[in-house]
Design a protein around this nucleic acid. Structure first.
Lengths: 216, 216
DNA sequence: GTCCTGGATGACCACCTGGTCATCGCATGA
DNA sequence: TCATGCGATGACCAGGTGGTCATCCAGGAC
């Protein structure tokens, strides 16, 4: 059933394969699934429209391939971070995640934006499957962190595990969003100046201590 | 220049005006601006396509009218909350905002979803203007809250005002999103059971105290 | 040199979109 | 009873979409 991409596609030069993948990511990232245009894509690439359908069968087939490819990249990055912070404490790990995550979304901005669209576009064909994969990769990741933090008594057990994960997810999500392309995005004017390190410290501090006044 | 809606529209029965507004909100809420279809809208309403253009000139004109109308409803709600909590402390006010905000998004789910689309769709024609209005209504609102909390020394001045507002905005945003239509949304499976009151308490507690272990 | 074949090609298709406008029904006023 | 004109109407338009497929061409086999 799922016989795409065809063998024909695997025979084209790796360079052209890469160019197609890259352009497709850019197209989906810029416009989301529905507004993305195959015509625009092939014009930018300078190849025939028929080729895309020869390779991937349909627009959705193209998207599936692009998604699967990028999932590998992201998974590898997450695995790398996990390996390199396994024995650190909760907030150190979180800090590392933030710093390297920031570098990652800046290095792969299109990829990041494409995932945002998957998360938000409720009319994406086959959305449930994609969503589950993204969730598995990101939220389960946070859940593992939180569990370890609770087990090591680095976190106060005031909150349920689920809320903790949800709040962290919300904060990291927005944090990356705001810092990934500071420019003409809607949320960008009001971030204070400072280095990434300082920004991360602000977020970590908030997560650790909250906003409340502490009696002194 | 901005002569829409036409006088013709103001002459149609209020009931029909209401039906059009309601259906348009539902359409934009369900599909976002670009995927929203005038054909679908007029079929659902049982009126002629020409009428919509007679009244509003264009799709964008229709959207502008819908947005302006709903802005009134939202502004009034915010004003109401502000009046009724003016002399309370920061966390009490925040709690009230959360409880009544929850009721509001459940009472006007379409309206809430439409605003989400405005916030996220970067290809929305005239987006900057809409964005500024939404921001003014929501983020400036939070900024006022935070300023008062800092002035009254209810909040620890560890963080910059900007980060505080941003973090709060991110948390409230996700909180409403997750609790507004618990069901088949992507983020819904993992909310713990409990009443709204309990959920609000969880969020307030997190915002006040953070996650860190407190020495005892 | 002559086949043969895999695959690149782009004209073409049905469908849908936002938008237009000639037509006509109806309510009003004389 | 007729004339007027407002506004509801939907057939129609140009343009864009995802998708198809007859055509053609380059390169290998003999």
């Amino acid at each position: 059933m799922n016989d795409y991409p065809t063998t024909t596609f695997h025979k084209v030069p790796a360079q052209k394969q890469g160019a197609i993948l890259e352009a497709a990511i850019a197209e989906f990232a810029a416009y989301g699934y529905h507004q993305a245009s195959i015509n625009r894509l092939v014009n930018r690439l300078g190849i025939a429209k028929g080729s895309i359908f020869q390779y991937f069968g349909s627009k959705q087939g193209l998207f599936e391939h692009v998604f699967a490819q990028t999932k590998e990249i992201v998974s590898e990055h997450l695995r790398f971070i996990r390996e390199h912070t396994r024995d650190k404490d909760f907030f150190t790990r979180l800090s590392t995640i933030l710093i390297s995550g920031l570098a990652f979304v800046r290095e792969h901005p299109g990829l990041y934006r494409m995932y945002m669209h998957v998360l938000r576009d409720e009319h994406l064909p086959g959305r449930a499957a994609y969503l589950q994969q993204v969730r598995t990769a990101s939220r389960a990741y946070l859940a593992g962190l939180v569990d370890q933090g609770l087990a090591n008594q680095e976190l106060a057990p005031d909150l349920s595990r689920e809320w903790t994960v949800l709040f962290l997810d919300a904060l990291l999500d927005r944090f990356f969003q705001v810092l990934s392309d500071p420019g003409q995005d809607g949320n960008s004017q009001d971030i204070p100046p400072g280095t990434d390190q300082e920004h991360v410290q602000s977020l970590i501090h908030f997560i650790r201590k909250g906003l409340g006044q502490r009696k002194s």
